[in-house]
Amino acid sequence: MNTAVLRADRVCLRHAGADRDSVRDVSLAVHPGEIVALVGPNGSGKSTLLGSLSGEVRPREGRVRLDGADITRIGPRRLALRVARLPQEPVGPEGLTVEALVRQGRYPHVGAFGTAQRRDEVAVREALRAMELGDLRKRPLETLSGGERRRAWLAMVLAQEAEILLLDEPTAALDLRHQWELLEILARINRERGVTLVVSLHDLEQAAALAHRLCILHRGRLYEAGAPASCLSREMLRDVFAVDARVHKEDGRLRVELRGPADPIREM
């Protein structure tokens, strides 16, 4: 049963060599089984915040805790058993087959010197099936289409069987149909496996449809967090995204109707 609570407490994050924090004073709690979407314009700190949640970026100030324990003090392998992370553009070597990639997801379970057990094989097979990659499992990654490749990487982190999955713009560079399929897959992973998802997304309508909660970042600060219907407003779009847009509900889904750039005077 998934009970993991991931919590960022007033974190300030800075990249090596930078003279300014790219995330300032952000607090966020992710509860078991929920989908949180991180949204915000380019450079608002989404990826950096995700990096801190997976322990990759050490907070300059503040703490990230998993069930109350500081994640910088949890060993990397033990953390990987509970929190999985997929970067925006993961890179694998030429010639790596889908199956070999997915098998890498078992690394935190098997360890550096262990041998794969039966349950490792089962997890790999299940991840391949869940991502509908059965027929492609012997194919090298570079021969797949963009959408298939994204599914292969997702299968790898699924095989990791972590309770929390952190995904950095999983729909980027996919065509519309593959974006839609991928969002369906994410919703299904959450529904059927109870996996907690923290996903950064650019498309606000997609974020609103997928997530239980939006977390809106603006210039490294948390602008607002809450249910999509309450966060997605004309004011927020003007303040954060500098656009004039109307938000309305259609067939039970939130729609953002873009009208143009926000009033230049307001933007100043």
């Binding site: 990397p76 392998r77 990987a80 058993l81 992370r85 970067p87 993961p90 694998g92 890498q104 952190l166």
Partner: peptide, 14 residues
């Protein structure tokens, strides 16, 4: 695991 990019490899606990 090292054949993957640093973030993915780190995410797997290496």
């Amino acid at each position: 695991v090292m054949l993957l990019d640093d973030v993915s490899a780190g995410g797997l606990g290496l």
